[in-house]
């Protein structure tokens, strides 16, 4: 099934596919979907669950891992929800569509897999008490407050099973979890757990590997995440050896519009500071040919107010998620004023 065009239409994908806004009658208007409000205060554990009245939502976990020999790996476990119409209905009549993406990256290899399912029949979903997010046989289960997670996923030639233990509280992105995504005011609800200690097993074609490392969970939901004048997105989650963390994104302007840049500084002690619009800077330094397109896989990232000036380089430039709606997502290494690791996601490179 060629779902790609359909997904394009739904404009559901990763934080940043602004392409299809207004396409297929879906419109940039919310079409009866709920819209994020600045005044809303997130409530847990309820907000760990699904929000079927919003058009799109995701549970997005990435991790930088290392085996006993010091070899680096990265994994991605993502569950997307996209609604054809607001609300939920029983059985096949459910308008909720779920999509799972799993990625596994080593310096020389990258694997990706994808699952699709409909809500309403139990094939995919998110429940609370205890927390469980699943699609087919992939799952992310654990404590209701997300402090502890077990996750697993598999593709044709790879699989992984990992445990995650949170080492600090959740942090709210933007203004108490209300994250603005464009000058016109498009926004989403957005919170993260940037500090998971990870351990478990990766199964590669060459055999199983025991790994440990650090994970980062993003939770986000919205109904109209991007403006019409945005063509794609470069998203960085960087974990410095100092213990500080930086989440920053560039929503690339299209049709002559300016880029929209924003982010959050998370100090080693857990203090969260939203960055002023434009404070976060990311400049491509080197490109790679990936799946027939040119994608920037080497970046200069600067945050002058924190004296950050680093080179962000992909572990494997070919970290292409070859799924219905393809994008680049993979682990990165950080060098320069700060050293560390992180994850980079880039969408909208045609």
């Amino acid at each position: 099934m060629s779902v790609s065009r359909f997904l394009l239409c739904l404009s559901l994908l990763a934080p940043g596919s602004g392409f299809a806004q207004g396409f297929a009658g879906l419109g940039t208007e919310a079409d009866g979907f709920a819209i994020p409000k600045p005044s809303y205060r997130l409530q847990f554990p309820a907000d760990h669950g699904a929000h079927p009245d919003f058009r799109i939502e995701w549970w997005y976990l990435t991790a930088n891992l290392e085996d006993e020999n010091g070899e680096s790996y990265g994994i991605q476990w993502t569950l997307f929800r996209s609604a054809l119409a607001p609300g939920e209905a029983e059985g096949w009549q459910s308008p909720q569509i779920w999509m799972g993406h799993a990625g596994l990256t080593s310096p020389t290899e990258h694997f990706s897999a994808e699952r699709l399912a409909r809500g309403g029949i139990g094939q995919a979903g998110v429940t609370l008490g205890p927390f469980a997010a699943w699609i087919d046989d992939w799952q992310m289960t654990g404590a209701e407050d997300l402090s502890r997670l077990d996750l697993s996923a598999s593709g044709d030639v790879f699989s992984y099973a990992l445990k995650a233990q949170a080492e600090s509280p959740l942090i709210l992105q933007g203004d108490h979890g209300y994250s603005v995504k464009s000058p016109e005011g498009q926004a989403s609800y957005y919170y993260s757990q940037p500090n998971y200690r990870m351990e478990g097993t990766l199964t590669l074609p060459s055999g199983p590997v025991t790994v440990h490392g650090n994970g980062w969970l993003d939770r986000e939901w919205s109904s109209q995440p991007l403006s019409e004048n945005q063509s794609g997105w470069d998203w960085f989650s960087l974990r410095f050896d100092s213990g500080d963390k930086l989440m920053g994104f560039v929503l690339r302007g299209a049709n002559g519009a300016d880029d929209f840049r924003s982010g959050t500084w998370i100090s080693a002690t857990g203090e969260v500071t939203p960055l002023a619009p434009g404070a976060f800077q990311a400049t491509p330094l080197g490109q790679a040919e990936v799946a027939g397109r040119t994608v920037p896989v080497r970046w200069k990232v600067q945050l002058p107010e924190r004296e950050v000036s680093v080179i962000v380089e992909s572990l494997n430039p070919q970290s292409w998620m070859d799924v219905a709606f393809a994008y680049w997502e993979g682990p990165v290494t950080v060098s320069g004023s700060h050293r560390g690791t992180g994850y980079l996601e880039m969408t909208g490179y045609e």
Binding site: S2, V3, R5, F6, L8, C9, L10, F23, A24, G25, L84, A85, Q93, P95
Partner: peptide, 15 residues
């Protein structure tokens, strides 16, 4: 057109 394909799919799926 691929767009037609997407539109067809949406029209088949959407109530």
């Amino acid at each position: 057109a691929q767009a037609a394909e997407g539109e067809l799919l949406i029209s088949l799926l959407r109530p």
